[in-house]
Measured scan of single mutants.
Amino acid sequence: MATKAVCVLKGDGPVQGIINFEQKESNGPVKVWGSIKGLTEGLHGFHVHEFGDNTAGCTSAGPHFNPLSRKHGGPKDEERHVGDLGNVTADKDGVADVSIEDSVISLSGDHCIIGRTLVVHEKADDLGKGGNEESTKTGNAGSRLACGVIGIAQ
């Protein structure tokens, strides 16, 4: 089992970053940390998408990683996509320092995120509470600013 993974985020604009993942036990939580720069100040949706395909930019990554066919939600919700990591918060300089621990994603097994795409979005994720159909699919997080395929790390 891989215990570490990394993702280099890039987009068409100024947004870029490096996100690290570490899972010490196969059924334990995954620590997610790193930094994203070039964002507007505020909240930005942060999700693992189904495919590791960036051939047409971030759009070819498909929908959120959702092997259990659930509705979109927040990272602490029972009803959520596996890939729903909530929001990252950018400061006035456009930098989001990421520090998350998640017990639904994994670096092995059915919820493995390796080979899938991590995406940072234009807007805040409403965590499935926006009151419309799009909220239950995407959290109304808007366009995909930057993305990268999650790969095994040393």
Rank of each mutant, 00 (worst) to 15 (best):
G13W: 05
D102Q: 02
R116D: 00
A124G: 11
A153M: 05
G57D: 04
N87P: 11
G34F: 00
E78A: 09
K123I: 14
N140C: 13
I113N: 00
D12M: 02
G62E: 14
E122F: 04
A90W: 02
F46Y: 01
H121A: 10
D53E: 10
L9F: 04
A5S: 05
A153H: 14
C7S: 09
H64N: 15
I113P: 01
S69I: 15
V6Y: 12
H44D: 04
D110P: 14
V98N: 02
G13Y: 03
F46V: 12
L68Q: 15
G73L: 14
R70S: 07
I36M: 05
I18M: 14
N140F: 08
A141V: 11
W33I: 07
L145I: 09
V120F: 08
D125M: 04
G17C: 11
E78H: 04
A146D: 05
W33T: 15
I150G: 00
D125E: 06
I114N: 03
T89M: 13
V149L: 13
K137E: 06
V98W: 03
G73A: 12
G109C: 02
G17Y: 02
A90D: 08
T3N: 06
K37I: 14
H44E: 01
V120G: 03
N132Y: 08
S143P: 12
E50Q: 10
K76R: 13
K31A: 07
H111L: 08
K24P: 07
H111V: 04
E78L: 13
D53T: 09
V88M: 07
D91G: 15
G109F: 00
E25P: 04
V95S: 10
E50F: 00
D84R: 14
T138I: 04
S60G: 13
A90R: 00
A61G: 10
V82D: 02
C7I: 00
T136C: 11
I114H: 00
S103L: 06
V30L: 07
K137S: 15
N140W: 05
T55W: 07
D91V: 03
A5F: 02
F21N: 04
K24R: 12
L43Y: 15
D53L: 05
G109S: 10
S135P: 01
I113K: 00
G17V: 07
